[in-house]
Simulated scan of single mutants.
Amino acid sequence: MTDEILKGKLAFLREAEQLKDVLRSAHTSSGRQESTAEHSWRLCLMVLVFEQELAGLDLQKLLKLCVIHDLGEAIHGDIPAVSQAAHPHKSEQERADLLQLTRSLEPSLRDSLLGLWEEYEAAATPEARAVKALDKLETLLQHNQGRNPENFDYGFNLGYGRRYTSATPLFQTLRELVDEDTRRHLGQQATEA
């Protein structure tokens, strides 16, 4: 391994640090906006926690997909789930941003990271579909756990990501449990209104 390859990897890691400052629309339980890096961290944690239930899937690939899935957001930021329909070119922008972010890496590593992102984006494998489902569930968990503004749209949660969370009995059951929390929040909002 040459010094130039190592310098390129360090340059990439310095740029990827931007993901720590990319804020999402979700709030933490203390009321501050969460970062995309925090979301990705808990997504990785979910894979580890549900490792037994995900038996038969490649754990290393699951974790790689979790780490890479939102990495392109380091450049142009996150588009909140409630606004994604208004951004039909989101995927193309994220891909371009990921290419920019990985430009200092040697081609084989850059292609590997881009390949993981493309696999996730296309939900092309059982691992990618599992990470898609967990990604949606993590978002819903944060919506329900966070100290949100009074006008937070909990109703959005009930339809969000169903395409992926309906894919297996595990994800269906997790979804039902998370939806119970959402309905509780909706009930509380109704009584406070």
Rank of each mutant, 00 (worst) to 15 (best):
M1L: 09
M1R: 05
T2Y: 08
D3C: 09
I5G: 14
G8M: 10
K9A: 04
K9Y: 07
F12L: 01
L13V: 14
A16D: 13
E17S: 14
E17A: 15
L19Y: 00
K20S: 09
L23A: 10
R24I: 13
R24P: 08
A26Q: 14
H27I: 00
R32P: 08
R32G: 00
E34P: 05
S35D: 12
S35F: 11
E38V: 11
H39D: 04
S40I: 11
S40R: 02
R42H: 10
R42K: 08
L43W: 05
C44G: 05
M46L: 15
V49Q: 07
E53I: 01
L54F: 08
L59K: 05
Q60K: 01
L63R: 08
K64P: 03
L65P: 05
I68R: 01
H69C: 05
L71W: 00
A74C: 07
A74W: 09
H76V: 08
G77Y: 13
D78I: 14
I79V: 15
I79N: 12
P80G: 10
V82A: 15
S83E: 12
A85L: 12
K90L: 09
E92H: 02
R95Y: 01
R95F: 08
L98I: 03
L99N: 00
S104Y: 13
P107G: 10
L109Y: 00
D111W: 09
D111M: 13
L113N: 02
L113D: 00
L114V: 13
L116D: 11
W117K: 15
E119M: 07
Y120D: 08
E121R: 01
A123Q: 03
A124G: 10
V131Y: 10
A133T: 08
D135E: 03
D135T: 01
D135A: 02
K136N: 06
H143N: 07
N144Q: 11
N144K: 07
Q145C: 09
Q145M: 04
D153Y: 07
G155Q: 04
F156W: 04
N157S: 13
N157R: 06
G159H: 15
Y160R: 00
Y160M: 03
R163H: 13
Y164N: 02
S166T: 09
F171A: 09
T173R: 09
E176R: 13
E176V: 14
V178M: 05
D179W: 11
E180A: 10
D181A: 09
T182H: 03
R183K: 14
R184L: 15
H185K: 05
L186K: 06
Q188K: 10
